[in-house]
Design a protein around this nucleic acid. Structure first.
Length: 547
RNA sequence: GCGCCCAUAGCUCAGCUGGAUAGAGCAGCAGCCUUCUAAGCUGUAGGUCGCAGGUUCGAAUCCUGCUGGGCGCGCCA
């Protein structure tokens, strides 16, 4: 936080004099209540035991040092030993001037410079369109990738395209069956096949492309044709949906490449060589118990086909071998069980599994008119992500899916989402942005421009200071959201920024005010607009100039 | 049965590394537009932070147990 640096050096110096080691953290927080200063520290209380002194005594000693530090108006000790710092108002002018100079870079951080991170998200099987629930993975993953990028990391956004498993054969069988039906042949639809309307659509494409002669092809060849057509259609459909949410992946990693490259075989060989894989009942087992996990698991079925675990391990090894410093997986709660196995596998392969970070988001429930929406009851077939975007718009989809902590179950209120008024939290943020845009337009028409040389010292109103205070926490908030993988912290912060601006707007007239106050307020509005625009960009929501 | 997650205002949820009187939106009630966008603002009301212990100067936050809900525990992915 930007204000910390006006306090930390003096506190550190006082602590050093008391013989406290330099790595002792200096806890600083923004007091919740009025009358407790602008910044408070609990460091005196945390040191009471080690120093063997009363917290108030320690606090007093620190205060002596602090009182002579620049920009500090007064310091006092309160309660059990809180150190409450009140800044001279000029500190806020210094901070705002810096924020103004950062221009469009406000909120950026450099903590990740020099590090490469891979964020894998969406990764839905290419066996059909994305359903509405997939939206959470999409939004959370893309926001986390954005956060890394804003913190200076070199980010690769990756989609693990699961095109080698058994489910692709089921897709091919389903399409083949519809193909026969479409061409007038009588066949039974596979019991566990995919029933969506899109299967019929893909079958029609195959029929159109190859004519009825396709039925005369050998089954293997025809199935392959169906599989390819299905994969292509699903891939294109999924990408089109992601496009609507402004999500673009850098790498689409094909699962089948793990077989053609020999990566899967390499895992088998290494595990065997280390005595971590053994044959039983005709299958190959991964000796997870030896690695401390609850039970051994099959990695190659007796049919010779691998289970998903094997390519998953090979895939994660591949990501680490590509040299990423951090490998992030975004998973739904239904995938929790697979993670320990993969991590154990990566470690068994001799790679650093601590670079892997997993984000597990809980499930989503859609509510409409007070009732739970059944996925299967929408549009006759299923409630797709496209349907959801169609109903509430891409901005609302992205924001609603990240506005709650990933670890909690999300209730997606469709009525609230569709509301285009004051109840909808997305509009509250966008409205603040549009309001500022409007003022800046009018200012420009009058020939007013914000320059870095503007005199900010005239900003002394409570609401002005409060807004600057919120803005000063921008960088730190983004860093924390990134390090902790908490997208909702951005949503929460943006609400604070918008609220602080609306309060300021209500009390402080900008245009038509005497100079230099008009210019100073204009500068404050400009910085706020940049903060909102950047924050909205991080969560993938548009920042309209007009509403 | 085992593992992971969750439990905070009527509803949906915030709550930074434990901190001072627990925060916001919606719903409720009462107000504010001849002036930069009222998609805004102000006020009011609403709570044994699931329960019981423990650690601590201090616990919604950490630990243990319990209750209630979600997800998972396959030679499916």
């Amino acid at each position: 936080m930007m204000l910390h640096r006006f306090v930390e050096p003096a506190v550190r110096s006082a602590l050093t004099r008391m013989g406290v080691s330099a790595d002792h953290p200096i806890a600083l927080e923004t007091p919740r209540n009025a009358g407790q200063g602008d910044l408070a520290s609990t460091v005196a209380m945390s040191l009471a035991k080690t120093l063997g002194k009363a917290p108030k005594v320690i606090a007093e000693e620190i205060c002596t040092e602090l009182r002579s530090a620049p920009y500090i108006q007064h310091v006092d000790v309160a309660g059990p030993g809180f150190i409450n710092v009140t800044f001279d108002r000029s500190v806020y002018h210094v901070v705002l001037a810096e924020l103004l100079q950062q221009a469009d870079g406000i909120g950026r951080s450099s903590i990740g410079v020099g590090s490469r991170v891979n964020v894998e998200y969406v990764s839905a099987n290419p066996t059909g369109p994305l359903h509405a629930g997939h939206g959470r993975n999409c939004a959370v993953g893309d926001t986390i990738a954005n956060l890394y990028a804003w913190c200076g990391f070199n980010v690769t956004r990756e989609y693990y395209f699961n095109n080698a498993g058994n489910q692709m054969n089921k897709l091919a069988e389903s399409i083949d069956a519809r193909l026969h039906q479409h061409l007038g042949a009588d066949v039974e639809f596979p019991e566990d096949g995919y029933h969506g309307e899109y299967i019929t659509l893909i079958a029609q494409h195959v029929a159109d492309a190859h004519g009825s002669a396709v039925l005369d092809l050998p089954e293997v060849e025809r199935r392959d044709l169906c599989k390819k057509a299905g994969e292509q259609w699903c891939f294109a459909t999924i990408r089109a949906t992601l496009e609507k949410l402004t999500i673009h992946h850098d790498v689409y990693f094909n699962e089948d490449s793990l077989y053609t490259d020999g990566k899967v075989q390499q895992v088998i060989d290494t595990l065997r060589g280390n005595g971590l894989a053994y044959e039983k009942d005709g299958a190959l087992w991964f000796a997870l118990e030896q690695l401390g996990n609850p039970q051994d698991k099959v990695i190659v079925k007796s049919s010779g086909e691998p289970t998903y675990r094997l390519p998953d391990i090979a895939y994660h090894c591949d990501k680490l071998e590509r040299g990423f410093d951090v490998v992030v997986d975004i998973f739904g709660a239904d995938h929790i069980a697979t993670i320990p196995d993969v991590v154990a596998g990566v470690r068994a392969m001799g790679l650093d599994e601590t670079k892997i970070r997993t984000v597990i988001h809980q499930m989503v429930t859609f509510i409409e008119d007070g009732e739970v929406v059944k996925f299967s009851k929408r549009s006759g077939t299923s409630f797709t992500l496209d349907d959801l975007i169609e109903e509430v718009g891409a901005d609302v989809v992205r924001f609603f899916f990240i506005m709650r902590a990933v670890g909690t179950h999300l209730e997606f209120d469709l009525n609230l989402a569709k509301e285009e008024g004051d109840k909808n939290p997305v509009f509250y943020l966008q409205y603040a942005h549009a309001r500022i845009a409007s003022i800046l337009r009018k200012a420009a028409e009058q020939g007013l421009q914000v320059s870095d040389a503007v005199d900010l010292s005239v900003l002394v109103h409570d609401k002005e200071i409060a807004l600057i205070d919120v803005l000063s926490r921008y960088g730190g908030t983004i860093e924390r959201a990134c390090v902790n993988l908490e997208p909702q912290a951005v949503a929460e912060y943006l609400r604070e920024v918008a609220a602080a601006y609306h309060h300021f707007y209500h009390d402080c007239r900008i245009l038509g005010t005497e100079e230099p106050l008009q210019s100073a307020r204009l500068a404050l509005a400009l910085v706020t607009q940049r903060a909102l625009r950047n924050g909205l960009q991080i969560v993938g929501v548009s920042a309209p100039d007009v509403m």
